[in-house]
Design a binder for these strands. Structure first.
Length: 716
DNA sequence: AGCACGCCGACT
DNA sequence: GTCGGCGTGCTC
């Protein structure tokens, strides 16, 4: 009786393919194995997700598995189940999730290689080739290349077709060669018990907080927790839990935002955790990643620290998943596969029957709400605030920077201290507007109004970063374009330079910092005290390793409140709180918040450092307007290069949702506010319901068969 | 993802 | 008339 294997391939396919298992491989093929299988002309690595004796009903003659690549299953059943559920919940094919989970070097596959035939060589010498053919032949004359390489090098519009023609004429041959795994000798490292040298003191309060979590870990059951409190105390609890887990040979996955994984932090963790620590992050080379994987699989790591990608760490016997800085926005809106790290961490913990410990000093409102309701909130207390906070009511002030803030800056400058100011708008003035017809120049790709950068005399699209020289006259009516004054960081910098002559002021924005050298130069300059005042957008707030200052200013955080986003209150709160992270410890440090909405609770409570105060009012607002967590919201994004195509897809999706007859409110489609990548059109559709089941019931069928790039984010 | 097939406009 | 653009569909 033949054995059949259901294999998930690392491609955007919606179901596994079935292969027969040759008798000689039967003993080695297991659920979770990597296998090399034929697909069309290619051979590639797939993952066995099921084995069965019965032949499936498809009438195809099944191809055999070519090779089993592992002695022991590559994925544990838990990890496999996790990726399957993640695939379902993120509407991403399982194979794509698996591909993202694995170091690329572990996915062998055939690679096409194009080489010139003797006949082709002859034709090249005799000059009987067409222009395009000759360019290809020139490249192939010294040695074969991959079609991809040719694609990059040859300026041909349709290279595959060109190659097909050349192949027909026998000018070239295309071979599929298997990229071999470099069977390096295994680094013979002792796989003995991992030694963690952990000795952390934990006061009685924290010890008590950790006890509930330890109980769950001992039972090997899933249970969520939210550690609410300052970073230092959270970390103390984490390390206590890690030590306890290690003592029972349990393993820990420790997720942090990408940004906070700085070399300094990695060093700190290494000091604390020693050899038993594995690190996974995006800047590693394939080889490094592979080595860390090996280490984790071979049980030589007790703790894995990393962002997003560490979610897939192949830890055996996982007892604890830590998700620190739970509120961090990059957990949901990062590049790559469209899933929310918070949701994914929960699924992983559920499948592994591990404890899930989320930590934050200012959790997302949804998370805090459910933690309190579900009684898994652990309050670690507040930090005693040392900094002085001033809320500057800007409604009657003039200029860009409040006179009171200016006096404070003056004071700091005299003491030779540095200042950081945050202002969440780039450039000089936001846009140009025609004085006659009211036309505003917009980006023809993103449809956003173009920002006017006075210094460079350019109009810049803040979504796709394209810029065009600023023009003086309206392209429509030839009327004169005037600057609509709404200042950005450049204007602020200019005002400060005027006010404080000889003062060194620099601006820091994501586009400004696009060139890494420039970004580094700015940061180093600030470190060396060559810059007195740094004015930056939100991207500066995400910059690790700046030297602490004694005065930080936040200008107009209320601008965030105008965003069409139900989380804007939380975002404003977090922006203000992020300024506090740049302060030097001590009573002389100050934060000034200059705002025209000093009475808004997000701003007032952020100034007071009162998360609970903020939460109570925000949750009231959410309930009033029926936003998450009191309703269920799906934000669906469609993107692609072809605007018409993207729009048509979105419209079809909306039609399907409306035709479903389900009780769902539909908002959109509308142009998404920010393009993630250059030149990609993004269209957004929001759905709102009272019941989660309704949302799930309508999303899958409505997205069925939509192959263009899409992402779905669910709230809460 | 690759890759083949098959259908319409512009040029050897 | 062919070339060559790209939308559509298939791969166990």
């Amino acid at each position: 009786m033949t054995l059949y294997a259901d294999v998930v391939l690392p491609l955007p396919l919606d179901r596994p393919y079935t292969y027969s298992v040759p008798v000689e491989l039967e003993g080695r093929a297991a659920v979770g194995s990597r296998v090399l299988v034929p697909l069309g002309e290619r051979r590639l690595t797939g993952f066995v997700v099921g084995l069965r004796k019965k032949k499936p009903r498809i009438s195809l003659k099944l191809k055999p598995v070519a090779e089993v690549l592992d002695e022991k299953p590559f994925f544990t059943p838990e990890l496999l189940a996790f990726t399957r559920r993640l695939s379902r919940s993120s509407f991403t094919p399982w194979g794509e999730i698996l591909r993202a989970a694995v170091p690329p070097s572990l996915l062998l596959r055939t690679r096409a290689s194009v080489s010139l035939t003797p006949k082709g060589k002859e034709a090249l010498e005799q000059g009987t080739l067409s222009d395009e053919e000759r360019r290809v032949a020139d490249l192939l004359e010294p040695r074969p290349h991959s079609p991809l390489y040719l694609e990059r090098k040859v300026q041909a519009k349709n290279l595959p077709a060109l190659l097909a023609r050349m192949r027909k004429k026998e000018l070239v041959i295309v071979e599929k060669k298997l990229k071999l795994v470099s069977r390096r000798e295994r680094d013979e490292l002792s796989a003995g018990p991992t030694q963690l040298e952990l000795d952390f003191s934990l006061d009685e309060g924290l010890r008590k907080a950790a006890r509930a979590i330890l109980e769950v870990m001992a039972k090997k059951a899933f249970s969520p927790f939210l550690l609410f409190g300052p970073a230092g105390r959270r970390e103390a609890v984490y390390f206590h839990l890690i030590r306890e887990a290690a003592a029972r040979s349990g393993r820990v996955l420790y997720l942090v935002p990408e940004i906070s994984l700085t070399p300094a932090l990695i060093e700190k963790y290494k000091r604390k955790l020693g050899d038993g620590l594995a690190i996974l992050h995006s800047r590693m080379t394939d080889r490094q990643r592979e080595l860390e994987w090996q280490k984790i699989k071979e049980r030589r790591a007790a703790v894995v620290i990393g962002p997003r990608s560490a979610l897939f760490a192949p830890l055996p016997d996982l007892r604890l998943v830590i998700l620190d800085e739970e509120q961090d926005e990059t957990y949901s809106q990062q590049e790559g596969l469209p899933f929310d790290v918070r949701k994914a961490a929960r699924i992983r913990a559920e499948e592994e029957k591990a404890a899930l410990v989320q930590g934050s000093a200012a959790p997302t409102v949804e998370s805090f709400y459910s933690a309190r309701k579900g009684r898994f909130l652990i309050d670690l207390g507040r930090e005693t605030a040392t900094a002085k906070v001033l809320l500057l009511d800007f409604r009657r002030a003039s200029g860009l920077v409040d006179p009171r803030l200016k006096r404070a800056i003056q004071d700091r400058l005299e003491k030779r201290e540095q200042v950081i100011l945050f202002f969440n708008r780039r450039g000089y003035a936001s846009h140009l507007v025609c004085g006659r017809c009211g036309h505003v120049p917009r980006c023809d790709r993103c449809d956003l109004s173009l920002a006017y950068h006075k210094k460079e005399g350019k109009l810049v699209c803040h979504a796709c970063r394209r810029s065009v020289p600023a023009v003086l006259n309206c392209p429509r009516c030839k009327g004169r374009l005037v600057v609509r004054m709404s200042a950005g960081i450049e204007a602020v910098a200019e005002e400060l330079r005027t006010s404080f002559l000889g003062c060194r002021v620099e601006v820091f924005a994501a586009d400004e910092a696009a060139r890494k050298e420039k970004k580094d130069a700015l940061l180093r300059g600030f470190e060396r005290k060559e810059i007195d005042i740094l004015v930056g957008t939100q991207s500066l707030a995400r910059q690790p390793g700046l030297p602490p200052v004694t005065l930080a200013g936040v200008l107009h955080p209320e601008m965030i409140l105008h965003l069409a986003d139900f989380r804007s209150g939380q975002k404003a709160f977090l922006l203000i709180r992020s300024a506090f992270h740049f302060l030097r410890e001590g009573e002389t440090s100050e934060v000034h918040i200059q705002t025209s909405a000093p009475d808004h609770y997000s701003i007032r409570e952020a100034a007071r450092g009162d998360y609970l105060g903020f939460f109570e009012q925000e949750i009231r607002f959410r309930r009033l307007l029926d936003y998450p967590p009191f309703s269920f919201l799906a934000e669906v994004f469609f993107s692609g290069e072809n605007a018409r195509h993207v729009a048509a897809t979105a419209r079809m999706f909306v039609t399907r949702v409306k035709d479903s007859g389900k009780d769902v409110q539909v908002f959109g489609p509308s142009v998404a506010s920010m393009a993630r990548k250059r030149g990609l059109f993004r269209v957004q559709v929001n759905l709102k319901t009272r019941r989660l089941e309704t949302l799930n019931g309508v999303l899958s069928p409505s997205l069925k068969g939509i192959r263009s790039e899409k992402s779905v984010f669910l709230f809460p």
